[in-house]
Simulated assay, not measured.
Amino acid sequence: MDEGQPDGRFIPVARLTALDARGRAVVQVGDTRVALVRVDGQLHALEDTCPHRGGSLHEGDLEGTLLHCPLHAWPFDVRTGLCPWRPDAKVRIYDVLVRGGEILIAASDRVPGR
C-alpha cells in the first residue's frame, strides 16, 4: 500500500478497518460504486460494475490479480481494469493512497486505453 501525503486529487473514501476478511470493500463516489480490493498487500480501486451484465465485481472470485464478475465470470485485472478475454471490455481504475489507516482514491478516475 502506498503511504504518503495526498494532494488535491485524492479524496478519503474509507478506513482500512472497512475492508472485510477478504480485503474488500465497496464505496460510493458520486454516482459510481468503487470496489476496493487488496492483492498481495497492495490496495486497488476499480469500478465495481461489470460492463457485461452489471454484476458487482467485489463479490466475484479473485485469481491472482484477476477479479471475476460473479454473474458470468468475466475477469478484470485490478491493476489495469482490462478484461483479458475481451479487449473492448474494461472498467475504470483509480489511484489509491493509504494514510494513517485512511483510504484515499484519486478524484479523477481513468479508463484504460484512453
Rank of each mutant, 00 (worst) to 15 (best):
G64C: 11
L16M: 13
G23C: 09
H52P: 04
S56Y: 05
T17E: 15
L66Q: 14
E63W: 10
A25I: 03
P75S: 07
V13A: 04
L71P: 04
P12L: 06
A45L: 11
D7V: 12
T49H: 08
P51S: 08
G30H: 11
P70Q: 05
H68Y: 02
V29I: 12
H58D: 05
E63V: 15
G8Q: 12
G60V: 09
G4Y: 14
V13K: 00
L16K: 06
V39K: 05
P70I: 07
R22L: 06
V13L: 02
E47Y: 04
G4H: 13
H72D: 03
V27T: 11
H58I: 00
H52S: 07
G23E: 08
H52G: 06
E3D: 14
V29H: 14
G64H: 12
D61H: 06
V29P: 11
D61N: 06
F10V: 08
A14W: 01
C50H: 04
D7Q: 07
A35F: 05
A14E: 01
R38D: 01
F76Q: 11
S56F: 01
V39F: 05
W74S: 01
E47S: 13
R9L: 08
Q42S: 14
Q28G: 11
G23A: 09
G4D: 14
T17P: 03
R22G: 06
D61L: 02
H58M: 07
D61V: 04
L67M: 09
R53C: 04
L19F: 07
G55N: 10
Q5W: 12
D48E: 14
L71K: 06
R22W: 03
R38T: 13
T17G: 08
R33S: 14
E59D: 11
R9N: 15
A45V: 11
C50K: 08
V26K: 01
P70A: 03
A18T: 13
D77H: 08
G30D: 12
H72R: 05
H68T: 02
H52V: 09
I11M: 10
I11V: 15
R33Y: 06
G8M: 00
P75G: 01
D48G: 10
V39S: 03
E3H: 14
H44R: 11
C69T: 05
R24E: 05
L19T: 05
D61F: 02
G41I: 08
D2V: 13
L43Y: 07
L36H: 04
R15W: 08
L46P: 11
D7C: 09
L36W: 02
T65Y: 12
P75Q: 01
R22D: 05
L16G: 00
Q42W: 10
P51A: 06
H68N: 04
D77V: 07
